[in-house]
Amino acid sequence: MDTIELQRILESLLFAADTPLKLERLAEMTGQDRKKVRDVLERIGNDLESSRRGIRLVEVAEGFQLRTPAESAEWVRLLNSTRPFRFSRAALESLAIIAYRQPITRAEIDYLRGVDSGGVVKTLLDKKLIRILGKKDVAGKPLIYGTSREFLELFGLRDLSELPSLKEFSELALEEEEDVEQPENVASGE
């Protein structure tokens, strides 16, 4: 199989798939070694990127998927009458805590946020963004939560290491914090 052919097949597979495809799976399906598949994927990605095409190859949830670039969002949204799901601040905060601190129990989330998070955790479970990882081996055997593959897909992350790095505020000066805080005031005042 030459590169052109492999490229064609990979593109077709990516186009027809409904979830991100893992490199291993693509290699298995095409009968090529991973290195070669990865090279061709990279080429496809670069081609789409450099010629500013309407679809891009992204690496999400440890797989590859064709997605439209953010610059087209405005138009793509015209296709859908439904408005995209918006997170409440509580939901996003809880999701952030779970993402960065997993595995984590409800009680720990509650403590970090200073409020009861039961309802929010349930919503996140319903949306399949988090999942129950098991039970913690302490008194009461509380459930422990972590993020799901859907979470990575939603936020376009290859894996958890791609989460934005946490700012450690102990190293920040107060003035800097002020700067960071300012835009939030505007945003939350909407």
Partner: peptide
């Protein structure tokens, strides 16, 4: 982050 269904679409 570029959110699926909001910023980017599959």
């Amino acid at each position: 982050l570029p959110r699926l269904g909001r910023d980017v679409h599959a």
